[in-house]
């Protein structure tokens, strides 16, 4: 795709302006809040971000193929409720992880079948599956409660050789995507998202490509639900209700086109970083109350607006010599 790009463009995976914004916001946050750069502050930040990071990764993959997926919040809800009701019982921690991932996979596969194979509209189908999943979560656990096994909590929120597990997961996500996007399937994802008709004509299997994307996304949501459970230590069927919009915001801020074909997981991770640090930064500089909402909205618009400028500049720069 992209030819030899300078190092600073590779930094954010095509989301350079977003990356710069993130660094700027981190800087402001650190200036106003001295504890920001302590290990306590950093691990808090990573733990706040990792759930959204996992979910946004899943969403990114689907969005790259040119489809929508709203079911993420629903899967997170089911998995959270499952972790809170099962992990203390027979399945144990690892068993719960397996079951939770299986559920994510299953929902992803159902979405995939309806969208990739039957050709239904992804936005509408996943509104449906979102509502169904939220319903299932409410049936499984009608009110907040349950308990998540201590092994899961310490396993996810703790650290390994002094590095927070959440940080390791972040890096793992970025590396996994770097690997995946260079596979045959990964290349197909971008092609299908950019132009499905041309992809079909050139022999790519569009349904299969999309199918795998939805299933992988489901797995990511499942993992997000599991990590979420570890973060909050309990189950709450309504907990992910407001999660959805942040997922999309992270993806878009990270420079992934919602029309498909452009962007990537690393950008979304930067987007997650921006959303997480934004909350901390607004608090640190003393923006309180209602104005948080206003700033939230404006920063999102600004982030994307500047994000749009970079391909524009690149296009102009490319055109000039020609």
């Amino acid at each position: 795709m992209a030819k030899a790009s300078p190092w600073y463009r590779r930094l954010g995976g095509g989301a350079t302006p977003a990356m710069l914004l993130l660094i700027l916001m981190l800087g402001i946050y650190a200036v106003y809040e001295p504890s920001a750069l302590t290990s306590f502050g950093i691990s808090n930040l990573l733990n706040n971000a990792i759930v959204l990071a996992l979910a946004a990764t899943g969403l990114t993959i689907v969005v790259l193929t040119g489809e929508f997926d709203l079911s993420g919040a629903g899967v997170v809800a089911i998995c959270n409720v499952m972790a809170a009701t099962l992990s203390m019982g027979a399945p144990g921690s690892m068993g719960t992880l397996g079951l939770v991932l299986l559920v994510g996979l299953l929902v992803g596969a159902i979405n995939a079948y309806l969208i990739a194979i039957l050709g239904l509209q992804s936005l509408a189908v996943t509104i449906g599956s979102l509502i169904v999943c939220q319903g299932i979560a409410l049936v499984l656990l009608p009110a907040p409660g349950g308990e998540v096994a201590e092994a899961i909590i310490s396993g996810v929120t703790g650290d390994l050789f002094g590095i927070p597990i959440a940080g390791i997961m972040f890096v793992a996500l970025a590396l996994a995507w770097t690997f995946l996007k260079n596979t045959r399937w990964g290349i197909a994802v971008y092609a299908v998202g950019a132009d499905p008709v041309a992809s079909r004509l050139s022999g790519l299997n569009v349904p299969t490509t999309k199918f795998i994307a939805f299933v992988l996304a489901g797995l990511c949501y499942g993992a997000a639900g599991f990590v979420y459970s570890a973060e909050i230590g309990s189950g709450d069927p309504r907990i992910s209700d407001s999660f959805l919009l942040y997922m999309f915001a992270a993806v878009a801020i990270g420079g992934t086109s919602l029309m498909g074909g452009r962007g990537g997981v690393r950008g979304s991770l930067v987007g997650v970083g921006i959303l997480t640090v934004m909350q901390k930064m607004l608090f640190a500089i003393g923006v309180a109350e209602f104005y948080t909402n206003i700033f939230n909205g404006l920063i999102m618009i600004a982030a994307i607006f500047f994000g749009q400028l970079s391909p524009l500049v690149a296009r102009i720069a490319r055109r000039r010599p020609a």
Binding site: A36, N48, Y228, Q279, F283, N293
Partner: peptide, 23 residues
């Protein structure tokens, strides 16, 4: 006295509470 509105996302509420502790 300071008021902070976290919205309906529990992780944001957690994040804001952490900020208050740090502050």
């Amino acid at each position: 006295f300071k008021t902070v509105i976290s919205g309906t996302d529990v992780q944001r509420q957690i994040s804001d509470l952490q900020s208050m502790i740090a502050a």
